[in-house]
Simulated assay, not measured.
Amino acid sequence: MISEHHVEVEATVRGVLRDVLGLSDDRVAAFDAITPLFGALPELDSMAVAGVLTELEDRLGIVIDDDDIDGETLESFGALTRFAVAKADGA
Rank of each mutant, 00 (worst) to 15 (best):
S24F: 05
A30R: 13
E55H: 02
R18L: 12
V63H: 12
F83G: 01
D66G: 10
I69A: 02
V63Q: 14
K87E: 00
G22Y: 09
D25V: 12
G78F: 08
L21Q: 05
L44V: 09
D66W: 04
E57K: 09
G78C: 10
D58W: 07
A88S: 15
V28K: 03
E55R: 14
R82G: 06
E43W: 04
L37M: 08
D45C: 01
A33H: 13
T35S: 14
T81V: 14
G71D: 05
G78R: 05
E43A: 14
D26A: 13
E75V: 06
A86M: 10
E75L: 12
L37R: 05
R82V: 08
F31W: 06
L74R: 05
D67A: 14
I34E: 15
R18I: 00
V20R: 13
L80I: 03
A48C: 06
D26R: 08
L23D: 04
P36S: 12
L56Q: 08
A48G: 02
K87L: 11
F38M: 11
D70M: 10
D89F: 00
L80W: 04
D68H: 02
T54M: 15
L53R: 12
G51H: 11
L56I: 11
A88G: 00
F38A: 13
R27C: 05
A29F: 05
L56K: 07
T81G: 06
A91L: 11
G22W: 10
A30I: 05
D45M: 09
G78M: 09
V52M: 08
L74V: 03
R18V: 00
A29Y: 03
E55F: 03
G78K: 08
A29Q: 11
S24M: 00
A40S: 15
A79D: 13
M47F: 15
I64K: 03
L80E: 00
D89I: 04
A29K: 11
R18P: 01
G22Q: 06
L60H: 07
F31Q: 03
G90Q: 01
T81E: 03
A84D: 04
E55A: 12
K87P: 03
V28A: 02
A40Y: 10
D68K: 02
G61S: 08
D65W: 01
E75D: 14
D66C: 03
S24Q: 09
D58I: 08
I69Y: 01
D68S: 06
P42M: 05
M47H: 12
A33C: 04
D70V: 04
L60G: 04
S46N: 07
G39Q: 06
L44Y: 07
E55D: 15
G51D: 07
D70N: 15
G78S: 06
L41I: 12
V63F: 07
G71L: 09
S46Y: 03
L44H: 09
